[in-house]
Amino acid sequence: MEINIRQWIVSVMILGVLLIGGCAQQDVTSPPANLPTEPPVTAQAPDAFSNLPRLEGKATVQMVINGRPVIIEVDGTNAPITAGNFVDLVQRQVYDGLMFHRVVREPEPFVVQGGDPQSKDPNFGGNLGTGGFIDPATSRERYIPLEITPQGAQSPVYGSPLQSARISQTPVLQHKRGALAMARSQAPDSASSQFYFALSDLEFLDGNYAVFGMVTEGMDVIDGIQQGDRIQSAQVVDGLENFRSNGPS
C-alpha cells in the first residue's frame, strides 16, 4: 500500500509540473504518451546537427548562485552535443543573471529548473519556461537533439527516448541526485538552453531526458535555491580545450 501511495504522489507531482508550463517549449514533464511507434534511432549525430558545438571529453563549470559556488562536471564523453551546447552558452555568458523559474520540492524533492533567457529581464511579463537561446548567427532559436548513451553502447542514441527506441539498457548518465539535465517539451529534439538539477534520484526520467553533468560540490546551494533566485555567473574553469565551437574536429 505504501508503494502505491508513493507512486500516486509522484504521478500527481509530474502532472502538476506538466500543467505549470502549459505550452512551454522546455518543460520537464513525464514521458510523452504519444510517442511514435517507429521512432528514428541514430547511432551517430545526424548531419542536421553537425554544426552544433561539441564537448569531446569533460569540462568543469562553476556557477555562482546566491553568492556561493556550485561545481559541475560536464560530461562530453557520453553527451557530446548536449554538453557542448551548455559549455557554449556558458562561454557566451548566456546564463549570467538568469532566474530559476521553477522549483518543485513538494510532495517530494523533484527539480530546480532555470536557463530561460527571457528571465534576464526583471520586467518580463510573459510565461517563463517558454524561451530558448537565439543564435545570433542564424537569428533563430537553437535546438539540440535528445542525446542518450545506453550502457554498453559506443555512441549515443539521438532523437528518441530509449523506451520508444526499444532499447532496454539504462543510460550511462542517470538522474541521480545532483544530476544536470536538459529540459524540453514533448518533442524530443526541442531542448535549447533550459536545464534542471535533480533534487533526488529520479529513475522514471532515465532514458527520456538527457543528463549531461553532475554537481560535484555545492549541492547544499542547490538545495537552498528558491524560485526567483538567479545565477550570478557561470564559467568554465577546466576542460575548455575539449570544446569545439562548430561540431567535431
Rank of each mutant, 00 (worst) to 15 (best):
V17Y: 02
N34V: 12
G16D: 06
S50W: 01
L19Q: 11
K58Q: 12
N34S: 15
G21T: 13
P31C: 06
C23G: 13
C23R: 07
Q26Y: 10
S30R: 09
S30N: 03
P36L: 01
Q25C: 06
V28H: 06
N34L: 13
T37H: 08
P31A: 04
G57I: 00
T42G: 02
D27M: 04
P36Y: 01
P31K: 05
F49W: 09
L18S: 07
L35S: 04
L55R: 01
P46I: 15
E56W: 03
G21L: 02
A33N: 01
G22E: 04
S30P: 01
R54N: 05
S50E: 10
A24I: 01
K58H: 08
A24H: 13
L18D: 15
P53I: 08
L18Y: 11
V28P: 02
P46Y: 07
D27P: 13
D27C: 12
T42Q: 10
P40M: 03
A33H: 05
V41P: 00
P53R: 03
G57M: 01
N51D: 11
P53Q: 02
P39G: 00
T29A: 10
A45M: 06
L52F: 03
G22S: 13
K58G: 06
I14S: 06
K58N: 06
L35Y: 02
Q44V: 14
A45L: 13
L55T: 01
G21I: 00
L15M: 07
P40K: 09
P36A: 07
L35R: 05
G21V: 03
A33D: 06
F49E: 05
L18I: 12
N51A: 12
Q44D: 08
G21C: 15
A43C: 10
T29G: 03
E38Y: 11
D47Q: 05
G57P: 01
